[in-house]
Nucleic acid binder design. Structure first.
Lengths: 235, 235, 235, 235
DNA sequence: CATGAATGAGTGTTCATTCAT
DNA sequence: GATGAATGAACACTCATTCAT
């Protein structure tokens, strides 16, 4: 958590620092991101950062939570589906909200995407795990609700399904979109504006394809008419 | 690629270096792994490594390819399903083969798992991408074959499906198993022997659950009326 | 010296600051003690300390003098031997008073013990020297008085004797007690309550042993002819 | 312990580094001594020091042991008293040898004197304690031998006596000499050449005074009846 | 009289890479 | 082909002190 000092800062100064920190942490992995670079860019003293945060990890953690907080608010406030929606609507909405957020705040979205990929760094292990646990719990609830309404079939191992769902919605969608843009995810991260290469229709179609996979799997069902397209990726 | 000098090395010396390098790279992320530590453990001169490899990345790249080569061989040679098998048998076999490999060579398997999670490091971006592309191509072929036999339904976006499949089989299964052991993946990586907590039966059951998800998706077998759009991403 | 502002402070606030400063300075060497930590614990502004004291050294100096003043008062007021006592009673009394003080105010006693060991720090050189000079003068007076009453033999180099006495009574006794507790002095400083391991009887016996050494030296009681020269310091 | 690299260094380079390190560590307390300053003076790269030693403490520890080793050799080899000497001759010799050493290698002697005074620094606690324990053991043996020959009276608490002896021979003599020079020890440490103010005769006389104190104590030659217990440490 | 943000030089330590022998 | 010493930039982090408000 930031120290009170941080919140007492003039908004302009604080915002400048935050945005430069986001810039740094979103453009390279945590380990390679450098406090020195941030303060140099911000034109403030190295020691000042330590008036605001305990250490590098504290700053990073706050940035990430902040990002997640804002993303959640965006996703929920801006595009919440009506009460009683199908869980598929909710999942679709998560994609759409995420993409809207990414369009509005590409740096922050990039930071989130990067954070998702920091799972190998021991120093970040605990916060990555905490975040993953929260996502897992949310998805588990969603699946349970879906079973209650019959939208999710019974007899499914929900823990396994929630884990797979998290992968699919997260890193999976990242890759699907990158692939549709014709670059790999790392390249995309280099230049978030690449997302503009995709038209809303293309995005919608990709989301529907993903939903189709999630809902019906790969195998042949006794398949009635296929559903209609729309939606969007994570972070 | 290793320089010719590397292959001219006495096998004992070469193997020792390789196994200590695997030890180091499998116990921490690429950036944190240290050549100094490897040579200190191996008792060879620091400069010698540069007689064998161009640099740290070259060594790492070779280790990872080597690992992947051996893993492929293991998975295919040791447990290849009969010609004409169902693609589901093949996928199942990939899991089983992967687990057998992990049991036989935990350090190498760990290295592979870690490699999978290095996607955020720009220095490794290209080799991670190359590896992902290879996996993707292999899965795409598999899915096409499945469509030919009717095991995979038509009308599927195969690119999307292959991507999701890769996530599911890779990081997804890693998390499913970790969750079944009651730890997170990072902790498991710390001590590969934790995998012993799972009986073959439990493993088999988890694999079936995953296959069930892949084949039939989350929705009920009898498809209800298609819903309308809306959704949300993970982070 | 503290500035007037310090004495104008509400007693509660002043006492709190003093006691937290003692806590900090008694738990680590002067250089490692941190003003930042003190003000953080006290919940006062960093700048305020500079309203009360010139700087860190000023605060420390005052604390130490204050401590020594109080100790002197304790030792003298509480347990002063009757007029006309033997100098050995006075020395014994110094030990007893000191131990009583340490029991009553362990933090302060600890600070004093630590101060004694700061002789190597150039920044503290002058105040340590001043304190040593005062002790030396006091002991010199004591020895002179002893010579007057015949309790201290004539022909002694009193400067040398006073110096040795100061060492013996100070750091020497610290080590004797630590040794009796089975720890070293640094460990003891970590946890002043360790002194409770020694019963009053054990303490008394150690003090008598020390007095025995001081009074009669190491040589045999029946004093033979004085020996010939040679020797060396420790490191 | 230094790494082999250190011993493989050209003697000139190694000696230069050692002497600059001694210069630095003997002119200020361990905490204030700076590796950066040493390498700057030596004109070598900062990283090089870490090829020779594990860290700052390792360098310091080696310097101190080295010093003690050499001092011991000096004191013993150069001026060892004949077999069967009185223990007083041995103690006298220790002083004389120590002084000879200090005259020959003032910087090293200074380092030793400073080390003796680092007892308050937690980081050095263990090596200071180890050194003190060795001194204590040596003195204890000496005293036991003295008791066997009747030079040291029976009925003495040898642990207490050895501790006091160590203080007297070490810090005590340091102060006695400083006092005779008319400066305090810290000032003396600033300029080791001050020791030249004392003539060999003066030094001899001070040593005899100290021995007199050690052998016969402060009390009169004719021993009165022993007193009863009670007492206290200084601080 | 109190505040507390700002400072910035300073610390010890790490590491991949080079290159003369 | 092997060696291993040398490099030096880079890192996160600390802290007493100042001074405008």
């Amino acid at each position: 958590m930031p120290k009170p000092t941080f919140f007492n800062l003039p908004a302009a100064k604080r915002d400048r620092l935050v945005s430069l920190a986001i810039e740094e942490f979103s453009s390279k992995p945590y380990r390679q991101a450098s406090l020195s670079r941030i303060v140099a860019a911000a034109g403030i003293a190295k020691g000042s950062v330590y008036q605001y945060f305990d250490n590098k990890l504290d700053l990073y953690t706050w940035l990430v939570s902040h990002e997640i907080g804002r993303r959640k608010m965006e996703a929920i406030a801006a595009v919440a589906p009506p009460e009683g929606s199908s869980i598929w609507d909710i999942v679709r909405q998560a994609f759409v909200g995420g993409f809207a957020f990414a369009a509005a705040e590409p740096k922050l979205a990039l930071l989130g995407a990067r954070f998702q990929r920091e799972s190998g760094d021991p120093e970040l292990a605990s916060i990555v795990a905490a975040n993953a646990a929260a996502s897992h719990a949310w998805l588990l609830d969603l699946l349970r609700a879906g079973q209650a309404t019959g939208e999710v079939r019974a007899g499914l191992n929900l823990d396994v399904a929630a884990t797979m769902l998290a992968q699919t919605l997260g890193e999976g969608m990242l890759q699907v979109f990158a692939q549709a843009m014709g670059v790999d995810v790392a390249t995309w991260m280099t230049d978030p504006s690449m997302a503009n290469r995709l038209s809303p229709d293309e995005i919608g179609a990709l989301v529907e394809d993903a939903l189709d996979f999630l809902r019906s799997g790969l195998g042949p069902a006794t398949r009635p008419t296929p559903p209609a397209p729309s939606s969007e990726p994570s972070s």
